[in-house]
Every structure is written in structure tokens, then in C-alpha cells.
Nucleic acid binder design. Structure first.
Lengths: 240, 240
DNA sequence: ATATCTTTATATGTATAACATAATACAAAA
DNA sequence: TTTTGTATTATGTTATACATATAAAGATAT
């Protein structure tokens, strides 16, 4: 038999799917902006010739991704979607596969390597002082316990993200904390006496000092050293 | 009159909100994994004592963020949410504010600066050859037109993301292309004869050569130079 | 016995109608 | 003028019925 190929399946869209597309068109055609209010459910239903149920389901989708908000009696208005929130919601269900988690962890490494320039451009005296306090606390605690504290790790790196002054980036980092601690917990024991290629280990104190008086270039290389065990772990994995 | 203070408002959750939370609990309690199927709408409705409509709306939210999928007669099964897709959907509506767009553009710069190590660890001969072709085509075209082509820009940088071998990162980049071209289009004219601090401009060819025989460190600094006009633009903006 | 077609049961999808609820506007009262 | 009640309205919720796709079982043909 002749192989059936190059034939597109008939569109298999539900009514709700179609309505959703139609709504998107409508928004574009009318060039609607944030804050604009849209017709009420019944009007849409009548105009499109479908039941209110279908309209509601389509609108509910938009509400779920944060494109519209609804209030009783007032109706619905376009809102600025919170792209991070969508991320959050999906993550809350703990259904991300191993591959995605790995990808996300790599993303974290990339971000910390790449944000040096923003840090140097936007650091304030207050930021540096706050970092100083964080590092000092860590140093104090580490005298007593040889235990590597995740808390201090989060405090320091979290502060860096905060300093970037990029809200999206910062919220992204908040979001990824669970993934980060997951990796931290599962860190193989040998990584505690990991052999750094340069011989020395760049501490938070070192990073802070460079941030005070150094350059983005030096900071990047120092951060690369600081993160070396993580990079090792990630890069030695053969990806399928 | 006594000032009314320290009184927390009663929770103002809709039924659907509550059901959604209850469903999340249910998934956790039963430790459900990807591929597991869940009870049908009517069973949930009866068990929770609400109408099928409310259950449907709650489930529809989950479907929208990609946590479940539904098929007629078969019922609903848990699926791995596609975190990027949620992003996509939100972006399609062109409702992102100026601030978010700026944040995202910064994110791009950060990513390109930070991914050097992944590139060097994962580059293959095929990748480098492909990049070579891309650069060659660009060089050929640029002889004729002095016009700076966005296409070549996208081809080159897009290939870099592809080489990272990080699917999430790569899809993220695909997603951000519109934002990128938006910035490209609105790039101020003077940036074409932008004065690079080091005097020389790092071309795609230069980056490629470093990728072939250089080190991540050198690549980072070269990329920093290559992106300098963009960094200038971003960093000179005073953020509120 | 295997493959293919037909039937049937079933869970989601859609439609309709009615009522509940909260927010707004406006009138009435203080 | 400010507060309080009241009507209105668009979304929120319920109930019920029917449509539709499809998995699964059963019937028929090869």
C-alpha cells in the first residue's frame, strides 16, 4: 500500500479551542491594551453563536494564564500576565521530569555566570553592606559546625539576584530554590572535598571582595571557580 | 471611633479556587505521578459535594497549565507540564509591560554571557561546521548590503543556544525571538557606529574562532565585547 | 484463528435555564 | 455630608439533558 504521508490531519479543535483563538483575534483586531474591559459573557456567546458554557471555558483559560481578570458585576478586564506565576503553578505539582530539572539547574549556573555586569552596574552601598553581613554570619557559624549550610548559600546567592534589580530574574530564582536545594541535598559526598582545578576555593568572602573593588571579568572567573563542583557534576553527564 | 486594625479579612476564595487546592492536595496525598489517571468529573463532584461545572472549571485550569490531559471516554491523566508553553501562551497576547520586556531582554544578555562553559563542553564538530556555514553566508551577504541583517544575527545566536543542548534554554530562546527583534528594530541609529571600548569589534567570525580553539574565559570576554552596545543600552537606563 | 467491521457503553464536551452572590450605583435617612 | 439601605447587573454556581468521540467488546468476514 502506498505510504500515507504529507497529509495534514483535519483540524481537531474543540469548540472551546476555536473560541479561544477567536477571542485572541478579537483582542488583536481591536488593539486592546492592559486595563481595557471586554464584553460580557452573554454578549460573546450571542455574537459567536455558542453557549455561555463554552465562552466561560475559553475565558477561564485566559484567566488561568493571567491575561484577564474577572470581577462580579464589573465584568472582565485585560491584565498583564505574570509569566513567572505560570511557571510556579506548573512546578507546584511536582510533575517535572528529570530532564527538565537538570535543564533548570543548568540554567541557574548560566544565570549566575552571566549576571556579573548587571551586578557591577547596579550595586549600591546598601547591597554590599548587606552581603557583608551575610558573609560575616556565615563565617561565624562555620567556625562551630563543619556542616555546609544551605541557608547561608541561599542567602548569599539570593542577595546577588536581588542586586541584579531585575524582578523577573529574581522571581525566577525564588522559584528555582526548591530545585536548588534538591540538588544540594543529593550532592554526592565527595564534592565536599572536591579538588578545585586552581587549587584554591573561591569563598563568598572572595566574591564579595571582588564585587567591592574588582571588575566584572574577575568576578566571572571567580564565580566560575566557586561553582566548579556544580559545573563538574553537570558537564560530566552525557546527555542523550 | 475605635480604629479597626489587626483583623484579617475572611478568606475570599471562590468554590473553584477551593476545589483546585483540594485537587492539588489529592494528587500529593495519593502521590500521583505522570501517566496516572484520575477519577472522573462526576466522581469528584459527588465526593466534594459540588456541581460538575465547578469540578470542570478547576480541572480546566489544570489542563490549561498542562498538568492534566483529557480524552473522551478515557478520562484524564496527569502529564508533565510544559513550563515554556505557559510562557508562550501568555506572551502571545502582547500584554507584557515595558518593564517585563526590559527584564527579559536583560535575561537574554545574561544567558549569552553565561553559557560559554556549556558550549565548550558540548560542542561537536557538526555544530562548529554549521556555525561556520552561517558565518560564511553572513560574510557573503554583507559585502553587498551594508544593512545589518537580523536574520543572520538570529541564525548565529540561535545556533549557540541549540549547541547548549539544553532544551529548556533553547525553547526559551525561541520564545524570546520576538522580543529580541523588537529591540533590534528599535535600536537607535547611532548604535550602528557604536564606539567599542576596546576599539575593535568582535564579529561572529571571531566568536567562532574562539569557540574552535579558545577557552570559555576568552569566549566570555569576546561575547561581552560583541554585546557591548546592548549592554550599554540596558545599563545606562536608570531603573526605578 | 486473525483481521476487520459494527455495536455499545462511557466520560468528556456542549447547551440551556435557573438561581446565588458580590460589587456598583443610586436613593433614602441620619 | 456621610452613612445605610436597596436595586441592578455580570459573574459564580447548580441542575439537567443531550452530543460526541472512542475504547472495548462483540459480530462478521477472510
Amino acid at each position: 500500500m502506498k505510504k500515507l504521508t504529507n497529509i495534514t490531519p483535519l483540524e481537531n479543535l474543540s469548540l472551546v479551542d476555536k473560541v479561544e483563538l477567536r477571542l485572541k483575534e478579537y483582542f488583536k483586531e481591536n488593539n486592546l491594551k492592559i486595563g481595557d474591559s471586554i464584553p460580557k459573557e452573554l454578549e460573546f456567546a450571542e455574537a459567536l453563536g455558542v453557549s455561555r458554557t463554552v465562552i466561560r471555558e475559553a475565558l477561564l483559560r485566559l484567566r488561568t494564564i493571567g491575561v484577564i481578570e474577572s470581577k462580579k458585576r464589573k465584568g472582565m478586564v485585560l491584565t498583564q500576565p505574570d509569566i513567572i506565576q505560570n511557571f510556579e503553578k506548573a512546578i507546584e505539582y511536582n510533575l517535572l521530569g528529570e530532564q527538565t530539572l537538570t535543564d533548570i539547574f543548568e540554567l541557574r549556573l548560566i544565570l549566575e555566570m552571566g549576571m556579573a555586569d548587571l551586578l557591577f552596574a547596579r550595586k549600591t552601598k546598601e547591597d554590599v553592606d548587606a552581603l557583608d553581613t551575610i558573609v560575616a554570619e556565615q563565617e561565624r557559624d562555620e567556625i562551630n559546625t563543619s556542616f555546609f549550610s544551605l541557608e547561608h548559600e541561599i542567602a548569599f546567592h539570593g542577595k546577588l539576584y536581588e542586586m541584579s534589580n531585575n524582578t523577573t530574574l529574581q522571581r525566577f530564582q525564588d522559584l528555582l530554590l526548591p530545585v536548588f536545594s534538591y540538588v544540594h541535598d543529593n550532592m554526592s559526598p565527595e564534592s565536599k572535598d572536591f579538588k578545585y582545578s586552581k587549587g584554591t576555593f573561591v569563598t563568598h568572602r572572595d566574591l564579595l571582595n571582588i564585587l567591592k573593588t574588582g571588575t566584572p571579568e574577575r568576578f566571572r572567573e571567580a564565580m566560575r571557580n566557586h561553582l566548579e563542583p556544580h559545573f563538574e557534576r553537570v558537564l560530566k553527564i552525557i546527555k542523550s
